[in-house]
Design a protein around this nucleic acid. Structure first.
Lengths: 218, 218
DNA sequence: ACAAATTTTTAGACAAAACTAAAAATTTGT
DNA sequence: ACAAATTTTTAGTTTTGTCTAAAAATTTGT
C-alpha cells in the first residue's frame, strides 16, 4: 500500500467508527481535506485491489481485508504514541502528528519489537485501545466520571466545563488529561467520590465528577 | 524536502564520501538504482532550490545548505540505527532498511528527544560517527586491528579472511561484528595483542589481528 | 587530432494522486 | 411527484518523479 492509500483506509475506518459503516464520498473528502473527485478516483483503485466495497453513488466500506489493514495501521499509530509519551516524554497532545508519519513505516519486526519494548500496552495515551497483532481489540467508551462504576479505571480525556475556575481547580489538584483514574468508592449521601489518580488517593465532590470525561476500555 | 529529494541528497553526500567531491550523473543513477536522465531532472530541481551546485556535463556537488541537509539525514539515520539495536534488539545487519525509512520522519523534537533517550551516542552500530545537531562530527576510518595504536578503541566491522576456520574461531571466542574492541597492549616479540572486547580481556595472535577490521573515530 | 566510445542531456510519455469544471445521479422540499 | 438542491462522478489538466529513445557533449584510444 502506498502512503496515500493507507491514509484513505484509515479515514474510511475512522469514519465508520470501527463498525465498518458505509461512508460517503463527501465525508471522506472532508476528513482527508481533499476534493470529492479525488476520493472517487482513489476509492475505485482501492476497490480494484479488494480493499473496499464500492458501488457508484452508494458510498464505500472496508472489506474484511481492508479492515485488517486499517487495524494494523491503528495498532502502529497507537504503539508509536505510547512510545513518544512513555519513552521520549512527549505530552499527550503533541504525539498525533508524529505518529501519523511513523505509522507508515513498513516493518513487521519493528512493530513487534516496539510492542515488546513498551511492555505490550493495552491502551494509548488517549485511552484508546491498541489492537493486538491479530487485530483483536476492546472497544473504548467515554463516560463522565460520576457514571463510572466502583473498581473501574479509565484515562482522563476531557472536561465538560472548561471555565477558568474549574481548570484552575484541576491544576491545583494535579488532575491532568492523560491521567489514569480509578474509582475506589462512592458516598451515597452527596455523590462524592474517592478516587485514585496517578497513584494518589483523593476525595472529590460530585460536581467535579460530573465535569470530567474518562475513557474506559471494557 | 520530499522523500525522493532527500534520497538524492544522501546519495550525493555518500558518493562524495563526506568531502563534498563533485560526482557524476551516472554514479548517482547507479547508486539510486535509477536512470541517468532521471538524475539530470532531479539535479536541476535541487539546483533551483539551492541544494546542489550543478553545471551541465560537469557533475554535481552539495552546496553548504545541501551539506547541512545531508548531515541532518545522516544524523537521523544513525540515531535510529542505535535505537533499533540498543532498545529493540535488532542485530547489526537488520537495521539499515528500517532506518532508511525512519530517517525521513519530520520532527526536530523527535530527533532531539531520541538522542537524549539514547544517551547522546557518538557512533552508530556500524562504528560510524553521528553528527551533532549542529552538523559537527568526527571522521571514521577503517583499520586492520594490528594497525590500531595502543589505547585506542573501535568497533569490529568486518573480516579480511572469511574462511570457515577463521569464522569458527571468532564464534568460539565470542568476537562478533559490532563488538567494541580496545587495544590494551602489544607484544613486540610475536605481534600478538592484548585486547578488551565487550568488557572481557583476551589475548589474540597477530594473525587474528591482521584479519579483523575495526572502525575508529578520531 | 580526430573517430569511436562513453556520458550526459533533451524531448516526449507515462503513472500516481491531486485538481477544476461540468455532467449525471440522488435526495429533498413542498 | 417533480423541480431544486445536493452529492457524486466524469473528463480533462497538473505536478512529481520516473522512463525510453535520440541528440549533444565529453572523453578515450591510437
Amino acid at each position: 500500500m502506498t502512503l496515500s492509500e493507507e491514509d484513505y483506509i484509515k479515514a474510511i475506518y475512522h469514519l465508520g467508527k470501527g463498525n465498518n459503516t458505509t461512508v460517503s464520498t463527501n465525508a471522506v473528502a472532508e476528513k482527508m481535506d481533499t476534493k470529492p473527485s479525488s476520493v472517487t478516483d482513489m476509492v475505485k483503485k482501492l476497490s480494484e485491489k479488494g480493499v473496499v466495497n464500492y458501488k457508484k453513488y452508494k458510498g464505500v466500506s472496508l472489506t474484511e481485508y481492508g479492515q485488517k489493514l486499517a487495524l494494523t495501521l491503528v495498532r502502529k499509530h497507537r504503539l508509536w504514541e505510547v512510545f513518544l509519551v512513555e519513552k521520549l516524554d512527549f505530552s499527550w497532545d503533541e504525539v498525533h502528528e508524529v505518529a501519523e508519519q511513523l505509522e507508515h513505516i513498513k516493518s513487521e519486526k519493528l512493530i513487534d519489537r516496539l510492542d515488546k519494548h513498551l511492555g505490550f500496552p493495552q491502551v494509548d495515551p488517549h485511552g484508546d485501545p491498541i489492537p493486538s497483532k491479530k487485530g483483536e481489540f476492546k472497544k473504548a467508551i467515554k463516560k463522565l466520571l460520576n457514571e463510572v462504576p466502583i473498581g473501574i479505571s479509565g484515562i482522563c480525556v476531557g472536561v465538560k466545563d472548561s471555565s477558568g475556575p474549574f481548570l484552575k481547580f484541576l491544576d491545583k489538584n494535579k488532575i491532568a488529561l492523560g491521567d489514569t483514574i480509578t474509582v475506589l468508592d462512592k458516598e451515597e449521601f452527596d455523590g462524592s467520590l474517592h478516587i485514585q489518580i496517578q497513584g494518589r488517593k483523593i476525595h472529590i465532590s460530585n460536581q467535579i465528577a460530573t465535569n470530567l470525561f474518562l475513557k474506559i476500555t471494557e
